[in-house]
Amino acid sequence: MILQLNDIRKEFKGRSNHSVLAVDDVSMQVEAGEFIVVNGASGSGKSTLLFTMGAMLPPTSGQVVCDGTDLYALSPSRRSKMRNLRIGFVFQTFNLISYLNSLENVAFPALLAGSSKKAAMQRAEDLLNRLGLGERLSHLPVELSVGERQRVAICRGLVNAPDILLADEPTGNMDPELTQETMELFRGINRQGQTIVMVTHNPELSETGNRHVLMEKGSIRAERIVSAEDKAL
């Protein structure tokens, strides 16, 4: 098991002191090699759950356990280190650092993990080449197309060979063709053994992974294993 969520509850306090319950008592386990697609309407709490899972947003109560360690019991510094080494992220808006080129954006987490500059650059270059961006190494994010930016972001998420890759609406800004292309990419990465948890509001993508979780009003409404037959349908 890669990650375990125990009774996660996340409440946001608004300015007028009204609180909003974004995630309500969610428990789940993520096994190695899984490709989980978390689906739900806007405001269902799926992104909040993903951020909490990724040690980015402390829950109001509950635990996120990775390798026997409660992530939120760690100091901010050790939590950052854990994120760096074991968790990869892909965002809807890519979130690339605007003044770093593709190669530097991808290599950066590896450098933070302690790799030498040469090794980090080599690993970044290999990944970018694998995802067809060999010609775009020195391009800044603004010089890349939407699809290319997302691929750079995926490479960055994978550069430290994380235990789990978390993707938040990775195709949210894409047209159907590019969405299909990106999903193919995710499936390919998953086939190579990478554990992925992807959040999407697009119900058509719910069959992409091998487990589908449907969220509603902060809770898991339904959960099912996606069979090969489902995918064929």
Binding site: G54, M56, P76, S77, S80, K81, R83, N84, L85, F89, N95, I97, F108, P109, L112, A113, R156, N160
Partner: peptide, 10 residues
């Protein structure tokens, strides 16, 4: 973003 990809707060 730097924090997400592993930069320590310090």
């Amino acid at each position: 973003l730097l924090l997400v990809v592993g930069a320590r707060p310090w």
